[in-house]
Design a protein around this nucleic acid. Structure first.
Lengths: 212, 212
DNA sequence: TAGATTGTTAATCGATTAACAATC
DNA sequence: TAGATTGTTAATCGATTAACAATC
């Protein structure tokens, strides 16, 4: 992997898309692909595909294209998907429950090791994941490596919980609370903002016909 | 509202953010705001704020700024949030259940009127929303106006269900299946792709220290 | 070899930022 | 009026696309 300068957000956003595309090709038994074919499968130009990849190294061969399995692994490595991650969920409401119970994450390298809530409602598990009172989080964090904390609680307490997560020295927050969370330089945050997405959908639908 | 040419995605993506910001100001009893203050609250420049708004009209006053309530309503109207929408959920698994049960949408103008699944598991409601067998969808669509269909099913059947939704003449799809759905010009789609978001998070976390 | 396709440089396009006249 | 802040034009910055030499 080439030494990377500063890769733009736009490029990074496309990496998971390439990754999925390559996984799909691999599942189909296809071993070889060109930037042109990728361009046809996704909403990108062939030029963009080559430009994007060349940020990280030279993964292809002139006259041949790219080896699907090799390229997939390279992109996985760039994204950090060659490692496993320990994940906890804060908030055992419906969203927290859905996330903790979803079986698909394990395949991708994400192990959901615990869930926490201020009210466990008598449950001690959600799906296969042990559920603890939120009070136990600090102790749990001492005894376990936690890579990612999922926030799945109402907006009100989101910032407070995020600050606590930072204090526990967890480096990544996946935020489902309807709040745009910005935590500064030394902690990674991704916000899933459903209502923003829903509003965008409505805008798009209302402007379908007008656009040409 | 000014006659709009072609507004860029980048601008549209910021509208829901402005909207939330203004709602927040309004709740706080603040009646007046400048582009400079908005810039301070969000991750945008004052210039960008004014540039964005001016795509749709002249909402401010020199020397004064913007009236919060007025601006909020203008943006709501641009997004189409001045109307109500009928929503159905396809898939009564954990995600579908979480969405159908979430009370917050009603406030924003979204009425969840029904859910459908190929296996209702003996339930006839999820939350306050009636649950029907998927077979009943076509009939239901004849008797009811459906503005938005939420897809909350596994990846495999997503495209098929999406095609059926299109056939029913529903104009918007909010897709939670882990598939990038592209449906062409005459139907609006928003994809909530959780695994892409999770991958981005991992990339960000792995590149925190290196960046500067 | 001839054909195909990469990686990269240069050209274009679009979005963001800066600046400022207009004006409340 | 003087100060503040808009809406807009021009300048800058960055990302996308096109083109092509290198080479498998």
């Amino acid at each position: 992997m080439k030494k990377r300068e500063k890769i733009s957000e736009a490029v990074i956003k496309r990496l998971p898309i390439y990754y999925h595309c390559l996984k799909w090709l691999e599942n189909d038994g296809i071993t070889r692909v060109s930037s042109n074919i990728i361009s046809g499968m996704l909403n990108v130009t062939a030029s963009q595909v080559r430009q994007d990849f060349s940020n990280f190294g030279e993964f292809g061969q002139q006259g041949y294209g790219y080896d699907v399995a090799f390229l997939k692994n390279q992109i996985a490595a760039i994204l950090g998907l060659d490692k496993r991650y320990n994940v906890i969920v804060i908030g055992a409401g419906r969203i927290g429950e859905a996330l903790a119970s979803y079986k698909g994450f394990k395949n991708e390298g994400f192990d959901f090791i615990a869930a926490f809530d201020i009210d466990t409602k008598g449950r001690d598990m959600i799906g296969d994941v042990p559920l603890y009172h939120y009070d136990k989080l600090e102790e749990f964090a001492k005894d376990n490596r936690i890579d990612i904390a999922v926030i799945a609680i109402p907006a009100e307490s989101c910032k407070e919980v995020a600050a606590f997560i930072k204090k526990l020295d967890i480096k990544s927050i996946w935020n489902f609370a309807p709040v745009f969370l910005y935590m500064g330089e030394d902690i990674a945050v991704e916000n899933i903002n459903m209502s923003e997405s829903l509003f965008m959908l409505v805008y798009k639908a209302n402007n379908l016909i007008k656009e040409k």
